[in-house]
Design a protein around this nucleic acid. Sequence first.
DNA 1: ACGCCATTAGAGTATAACTCTAGAGTAATA
DNA 2: TATTACTCTAGAGTTATACTCTAATGGCGT
Lengths: 192, 192
Amino acid sequence: MPSSDTRDKIVAAALATFVEKGVASATLQAIRERAEVSNGSLFHFFANKQSLCEAVYLEGIQDYQNGLAEQLKQSGGARESVAAVLRYHLEWTERNRDRARFLSERGYTGWGGDLARQVDQANTALMSTVSAWVRRHVAEGTLKPVSPEVVVATLLGPAQLLCRAWLASDSAAAPTSHLDELVAVTWRALSA
Amino acid sequence: MPSSDTRDKIVAAALATFVEKGVASATLQAIRERAEVSNGSLFHFFANKQSLCEAVYLEGIQDYQNGLAEQLKQSGGARESVAAVLRYHLEWTERNRDRARFLSERGYTGWGGDLARQVDQANTALMSTVSAWVRRHVAEGTLKPVSPEVVVATLLGPAQLLCRAWLASDSAAAPTSHLDELVAVTWRALSA
DNA sequence: ACGCCATTAGAGTATAACTCTAGAGTAATA
DNA sequence: TATTACTCTAGAGTTATACTCTAATGGCGT
């Protein structure tokens, strides 16, 4: 897993260019020029545009998910965890607007290769963390017994939709302005 | 607004090809051949690949949103409406898997032109329907007073996330299998 | 019948993704 | 220090494909 300097420059330039022009009309030449890297270098690290895309995606989602998992691992009451997760999601999105844009508009179905597998791996890792958290709090009687899939959906779904709306149009209010309302609603949905 | 036969064939072929190969690697030639249409015809209806993309998106989201709005307009208790909306979302997704795949993986930010405007229009139309519904039920005391943005997010966010998981991997359980749990949780989140 | 316009056709072009061959930098080994 | 092996950089060259252009076809109103 190369941590090369030029590789990073390429990924960063790709993200910026993708968000600026859209993936389809972002040319590799533009990316190359922004990264100040030769054609040969680019193709040395990435077999094709697709895999460059995947790398950008992976880098973003890993950063997001690592932070998220930490919120759930904090020992503390269920309510505090819920609040922490929601705050994390909203703040991460505001702080990483470009990455968030890219992630929210781009699925990864139909990707082959290692990277798709790595994304899946990251997802299932997150899912098992959530499952453990759910089991613990259901046992303690602080959460309603609900399947982990629905818990994840209830926890993150509304936050994602809210953030999407913000990312899509600059007119919408900042996600964090909805934080308190969101926490209240979500907690009522899940608490025992 | 042409309702041409060949135009429809092109859109259908495009959707199928996009889902099958991914938008990036779906060539116009492949679409053309599947639709049994000449190059000239294709470019007569769509200026470029992008606008073909947008047409597919628009066609999908309009179909979805029209049905959704109807669920909210049905006169009935708030709880019935919530259940109806959720059922509609899950069932529509299962019945229109290709369209749903395409919609869920593709944002429309950065699109110019009429079509982007039409999507925005459809979104705000839906939003005002929801707002009216919220006001009505808050006034009747059946819903907690929550901002329409958060209501929409709470209502549709979890369902979307659940559906996404299903669309991404065939291993996940069908969305409708979570319907009852989802309705219960969502209702507790929103009811007064 | 005649002209008008929407549509179809497919050969042709331009651009952007991708390939290839060669060379520069770097580190390990003798 | 010389040699070798290897990673990375370079940019000219090739190919695929999105898109353009000119011409023909078919229906429809007058």
